[in-house]
């Protein structure tokens, strides 16, 4: 068990190097240099100033030197300064946005599992009945719904038509003067639609996965034994089958992280949520390449850590692995 965790931790090193390599090449091998991109928009910048800026950002060095010095800084959590007008350190801009996106996605993840597990169980237990078929059709529609369209429709229906929910931001104007319960309620109202959009995305896939995982377990001999003992079906399903059926979902939770982070661009731009997705979109639009690189590295690292945590929890939860080594 310890050996397994140690091996996984050691694997992080080459993967992290790979992540920085991909990020660096994506930005630097794309045609046109980052500073050129910025300057191209401003005809007033002369050749000399251009050279000076290049030197300032170290862009006059050969690529491998640039890469090494960049990685060296990242190792010390120094992601450089943002190229935007305020020129703040990238790490500050990211850390002020990160909590919003992470907590929003955590709520979404909890909701997803909270709904997907019972839906999957229901479909599996009622296999091939109209309940299962109905769920299957709904799942397929859920798969096909574009997140930004759902975001727009919710906005139109709850925001514009019914006027129940606020359509942008995290707080209302002047909410600073609210009492605490009112302030929280205001924030919850702002969060309802973004969380719905964030969580429904993987709900369909997850419930489908839960269904097949449950069907696999139900087909096993020990479930037949449990039934043969005369246990009520409820006990067989929820006590004997469920625990094993849930195991593969742990891995899936890790796998769903990149999708969640990537999806945050959509709902954060639609609902004007000041999170990492919106920051990334702004960075990309203003060609703020230090910021873009920083977010790429941090986004990929989050996935890496998420997968590692998922694998370790799997090893702890599954006695076959726990006692195996």
């Amino acid at each position: 068990m310890e050996g397994y965790i140690l091996k996984r931790l050691l694997m992080l090193v080459p993967l992290m190097i790979g992540i920085t390599l991909v990020t660096f090449s994506v930005i630097h091998l794309a045609p046109g240099e980052p500073v050129e991109m910025q300057m191209a928009m401003n005809p007033k910048v002369g050749k000399e100033a251009r050279e000076r800026l290049k030197k300032f950002y170290g862009l006059d060095q050969p690529l491998h030197i640039q890469y090494l010095s960049w990685v060296g800084k990242i190792a010390r959590l120094d992601f450089g300064r943002s190229l935007s007008s305020d020129g703040r350190p990238v790490i500050d801009r990211i850390t002020e946005r990160l909590p919003v996106t992470v907590s929003l996605n955590l709520i979404a993840l909890v909701l997803e599992f909270g709904f997907a597990i019972p839906i999957g169980i229901m479909a599996a237990v009622h296999r091939d009945t109209w309940i299962d078929k109905g769920i299957t059709v709904l799942v397929f529609i859920g798969f096909a719904l574009p997140a930004f369209w759902v975001a727009l429709l919710l906005m139109y229906f709850f925001g514009v038509k019914l006027n129940w929910l606020p359509v942008s931001g995290l707080h209302s104007l002047g909410s600073d003067s609210y009492s605490l319960p009112l302030y929280l309620w205001d924030m919850i109202k702002h969060l309802i639609m973004p969380v719905m959009v964030a969580s429904f995305g993987s709900l369909a896939g997850l419930s489908r996965y839960m269904r097949s995982s449950m069907l696999n377990v139900i087909a096993q001999d020990y479930i037949t034994t449990a039934r043969a003992k005369g246990l009520p079906e409820r006990v067989v399903i929820y006590k004997h089958a469920l625990r094993n059926a849930l195991l593969p979902l742990i891995t899936l939770a890790g796998f769903s992280i990149p999708g969640l982070i990537g999806g945050s661009v959509i709902f954060e731009t639609v609902y004007a949520i000041p999170g990492m997705g919106q920051l990334f979109y702004q960075g990309v639009m203003s060609r703020d390449y230090t910021l873009v690189m920083g977010i790429l590295v941090i986004g990929a690292t989050l996935t890496l850590v998420g997968n590692l945590l998922a694998d370790i929890s799997y090893a702890i939860a599954d006695p076959r692995i726990r006692h195996g080594q």
């Binding site: 993967l15 992540i19 991909v22 994506v26 930005i27 794309a30 991109m37 990537g262 790429l296 996935t303």
Partner: peptide, 14 residues
């Protein structure tokens, strides 16, 4: 490891 959508956005805008 990369959120695919981030990677696509980053490349396309450059």
């Amino acid at each position: 490891c990369f959120p695919a959508f981030f990677l696509i956005l980053a490349v396309i805008t450059f």
